[in-house]
């Protein structure tokens, strides 16, 4: 080949292998290309679904002037969090409210739900299955229908803008669903052990406490994760039932919409506080979703 023809020759050479070798690529290289395409697709999926989460968290740590740019490289700062904790955003008291409401919901709901789940699992009730199915059916009542009478009732009871009102409202969906979830776990525990405990001299209640509850701990923990996620994330009831004192993190987000426009860096700072526990618990959260799938519904 002459020097002058080297360039066209190189171009001509490129397609040649496909003609010289069989038209199909070898199965190994085909698999390698498919594998690479697949990896790329998965990375793209991660970018689309997880990117926004990262973006919000990064924004929370940006200088206000960087917030309104698309730059990914910046000097991190805690200024936004500092501003958010001050008046008029009160991130501190909002966070405290969220923690108290969430903890209160979990602490009150789980014992109630565990007791009912045990009863529905082990005893026959007149009407049979209708009871436990009815409990699940309550999950499909739209919240807007519940909140109107609750609002009226809490107003006349003087409970508006209290954390207790939010806890009670949260229990309306946490208790029924937890019953359903824990019942599934208790159904899978054979009755032998608690029968043995009763013959060994324990009352039914003591057998539940000594034997059934320790064995149902994984189920109760799963229900606790569920209760945490939905109470922490609850927005609508809190929006209607709180004004000032009981405002939670979720409702606090609305407070960053000022007359001068949305204060994005403050929203992002609040978002960071909202997301953090979910990130920390993500492994367990996933487990709860999978457990929830068994019963076919998640709020």
């Amino acid at each position: 080949m002459t020097e002058g023809s080297s360039l066209p020759g190189a171009i001509a050479a490129a397609p040649r292998p496909t003609r010289a070798e069989p038209v199909r690529l070898s199965s190994r290289s085909r698999r390698r290309i498919a594998g690479a395409a697949r990896t790329l697709t998965i990375l793209l999926v991660i970018l689309v679904f997880f990117g926004p989460v990262v973006w919000i968290m990064l924004t929370a740590l940006k200088q206000p002037r960087d917030v309104y740019s698309l730059s990914v490289i910046f000097t991190p700062t805690l200024d936004n969090l500092r501003t958010a904790f001050a008046s008029p955003y009160f991130l501190g008291s909002r966070t405290l409210n969220s923690i108290i409401v969430t903890t209160g919901t979990i602490v009150l709901s789980l014992p109630i739900a565990t007791a009912a789940a045990y009863a529905f699992s082990r005893f026959r009730f007149p009407g049979g299955n209708a009871w436990s199915l009815g409990v699940l059916a309550t999950q499909f009542i739209p919240p807007v229908i519940i909140i109107i009478p609750l609002f009226v009732a809490f107003r006349s009871a003087g409970l508006l803008d209290t954390r207790l009102a939010l806890i009670i409202a949260n229990m309306s969906f946490v208790v029924p669903y937890s019953i359903w979830m824990i019942k599934g776990f208790i159904d899978a525990i054979p009755a032998d052990m608690e029968e043995a405990a009763q013959i060994d001299g324990a009352s039914r209640l003591r057998a539940i406490w000594d034997v059934v509850v320790p064995m149902a701990i994984p189920g109760i923990a799963t229900a606790a994760i569920f209760a945490f996620v939905v109470s922490w994330n609850e927005f609508f009831y809190a929006l209607v039932l709180s004004r000032q004192d009981a405002v939670t993190l979720q409702v606090g987000l609305m407070g960053a919409r000022t007359e001068r426009g949305d204060a994005w860096e403050i929203m992002a700072a609040m978002g960071l506080v909202i997301i953090l526990p979910m990130l920390v618990l993500s492994r367990y959260v996933q487990r709860y979703f999978v457990a929830g799938l068994v019963s076919g519904s998640v709020r």
């Binding site: 999926v45 991660i46 679904f49 997880f50 926004p52 989460v53 973006w55 919000i56 924004t59 996620v229 922490w232 994330n233 609850e234 927005f235 979720q250 409702v251 987000l253 949305d262 994005w264 929203m267 992002a268 978002g271 909202i274 997301i275 979910m278 990130l279 993500s282 492994r283 959260v285 996933q286 979703f289």
Partner: peptide, 21 residues
């Protein structure tokens, strides 16, 4: 595991985030 996070985020925050995005 990463994809669970969007669903574990509160709907309210999801709305706010997309308003921003």
């Amino acid at each position: 595991t990463l994809l669970v996070i969007p669903f574990a985020m509160s709907p309210a925050l999801v709305g706010v985030s997309w308003r921003f995005l």
